[in-house]
Design a protein around this nucleic acid. Sequence first.
DNA 1: TTGAAAGCGCTAACAA
DNA 2: TTGTTAGCGCTTTCAA
Lengths: 343, 343
Amino acid sequence: LAVTIYDVAKAAGVGIGTVSRAINNSPQINLDTKQRIQKIIKQLNYQPHALAQSLARKRSNTIATIVPFFTNYFFLELLRGIQQRLTENNYDLILYSVDKIDRREVFLDRTLVERRVDGVLLISLGIPDDYAERFISSSLAIVLVDSFHPNLDSFLVENVDGAFRATEHLIKLGHRKIGMIDGHLSSRPGLLRLEGFKKALRHYHLQFDDRHLVICDATHGEDGFNEVSGYEAMKQLLELGSNMPTALFVASDIQAFGVFKAAKERGVRIPEDVAIVGFDDIELAEFIGLTTMRQPIYDIACLSVEKLLARINGPDSLINSKKLNTELIVRESCGAHIANRSK
Amino acid sequence: LAVTIYDVAKAAGVGIGTVSRAINNSPQINLDTKQRIQKIIKQLNYQPHALAQSLARKRSNTIATIVPFFTNYFFLELLRGIQQRLTENNYDLILYSVDKIDRREVFLDRTLVERRVDGVLLISLGIPDDYAERFISSSLAIVLVDSFHPNLDSFLVENVDGAFRATEHLIKLGHRKIGMIDGHLSSRPGLLRLEGFKKALRHYHLQFDDRHLVICDATHGEDGFNEVSGYEAMKQLLELGSNMPTALFVASDIQAFGVFKAAKERGVRIPEDVAIVGFDDIELAEFIGLTTMRQPIYDIACLSVEKLLARINGPDSLINSKKLNTELIVRESCGAHIANRSK
DNA sequence: TTGAAAGCGCTAACAA
DNA sequence: TTGTTAGCGCTTTCAA
């Protein structure tokens, strides 16, 4: 049923080598024979067998993307960008999703060892040193997205700076009692955003208050960046009563959804009673009027794919790590300057 | 650098056939030699080359999933379930996302012709007859999810029935002027949910009113199932003033987000001024207290993967199409019975 | 410019 | 129980 290169060769009265040249439009072929072969290929509806090609060429035109699936919509948008870019470049994407963090090694191993893909995109997941070493020595291309290792290419958003500016926005609005809701600190973004937050407080000579920081637990192997965690964190803060901060930096938009819900349940108004600034700018952020730090998700997707393909094709360029800036998107969740509030 | 089956054979002092038997734990091998070989495999850190295996076995342990990426979070959850299930069964997933509907044929073609995958999962996308025919005659396994073709396996949710019950819920709450916001009718769910809506009105002897139906446009090649469309549809309905329906069936939760936003902007209260019931029960639905019809997304994912694998392994079973029920999840967006409203 | 033939790394049929 | 060998469908030397 399947037509092979031999069938084409026979029909055209040439050797399979010549057919191969026609397919891969090699310059080493007579234009006439090439066209003749192409016509026959059309007639027979021949298509090269992708696996056989990969085996012979020692490259599969396929890359693997390893993502933590969590509940973060950040990944959906990222994935979409990656897929688009890959398709344009004629690459296929194998998707691995890790449910529990420790499972990531299974997939790293798989890609290293099965030689089924030309490269891997590791998303928001740290890489242990020994694996980094294996990637380097096996010269399997890899780029880290939203993660970092000194010996590998990576793309990061300016988490510290972004958190700094988010917090600064609150401070400039007149807030002095500012809290934060973060994801788990085992996640790099979680750690860095907290750092940025503290840095901003320090810079503006504000006191950091333990009770105003809630770090969401990594329940069910997740990283705390989800609505439920945000909801519970907010409820916890609400217990503070009059000690409650007047403003909150929430480390992800998705958590902010939970915050909004908890606030609403308690009749706490946003932004009148508490101002909220998020992080990510997922599509839905606009629909709750959330002021947030936008991550250049689409740019990250494009750049990382380009970098990966570049490394596949020219393995010896210098390692580099690029940081992308975030952008403050002002909507309604922070309201006006606090001095004008009482009016 | 790469160690092959020959290296192992040499080190073990056996033929490659024996090594192959050890790998694929064939019964036709002496237990001792098998264990000896396995030890050597460990030592050499040998792993079979996945592509070479696939080529020789004529099966790749990989399936393709073709999804319309739109903006629907429905797919994220579905994808996660599919991935999980596939991993358990030792299959890899190649993800193709179609941005514009007409691009789906590119990928269908690709899977048919490159023979790189053992089967395909086609999500929420119709399949033209000629392609269906090609799948059948090439005996490449395929199952349709949230889509239908008489000659192919498929899984569907009870869209008509779900819409009927959603509308019925509104009616039983005392509403008589009920509107609907739908996605584009070129989408099967869009069409069927409208059908269910009308059926419910008819069944309860209510008049269908054109002005109370808004069908979201398929702008930018999308299907209207997104927040922006919902937002605009709601604004349009709000123009009706006193003719505005007292209740709305919104064909997807994500559109309902837009509806909520528009309502809030105009100071229209939910559920006091207008009751809303959605469809999908995406995770965020809970966070706006949306009453909605739950689709059994995870079940669909599991069942369709199982069906696909079954068909790959036993191609000759009967074609079947299974429908899955939806479930009404009551939250706050419909409020109490309308007769109690004025209190 | 072309054909023949040697791989790519494995599986599976066949013979021993 | 094992080794040998012929594919799987292609790419890519090497000669011609």
